[in-house]
Amino acid sequence: MPEHIIERLKAGDEAAYKELVDKQQQRVLNTALGLVQNRELAEDITQEVFIEVFRSVEKFGGQSTLATWIYRITVNKCLDALRYQKRGKRFAFITSLFRQDTGELKYESAHFDHPGVALEKKENARILFAAVEELPENQKVAFVLSQVEDVPQKEIAQIMDISVKAVESLIQRAKVNLRKKLENIYINRRK
């Protein structure tokens, strides 16, 4: 992503907005899919991410790359949605994603099928994503960015605003936790 696009975005160049959406949407959607594990919710979050980018691009100081900044917004939006889902609190930007009468999430994440997984891996990926869903928040973010989006650890550190060592540790712990969960699933499947 050429960095001069930032100047065009700041100048309100509509072609630059469209170019940004076209080039970055897959990255945003894939990250959101990995974190919230629901296609419709991930698509809604993708739109919210770009709205946030357009709104606050003027404040973007270039401390990180544009892609890293967009990843950070994506992760924050996903975590807000997941927290809302968990605690049932109201967030203005995301209320449209919830039923007005009950406040429950419109979209269910059970039996999530990532659209990018090859057919022969679908069953395994479904089991893995179910286990990932149970990970603590920061381990989930580090694991998804590293394994699903293939983001380098240095960039994950910038996205999560932690050290590279902390990222390494989070991924390691996530893998250990996932192995434990998978061991239990394996035992239950054998019964």
Partner: peptide
């Protein structure tokens, strides 16, 4: 095998009307 199933996942197709 399960752990490896998340690796090299293809990014989903973009939506041309997203903007």
């Amino acid at each position: 095998e399960v752990m490896a199933s998340a690796k090299r996942i293809e990014r989903p197709m973009g939506n041309p009307f997203l903007y």
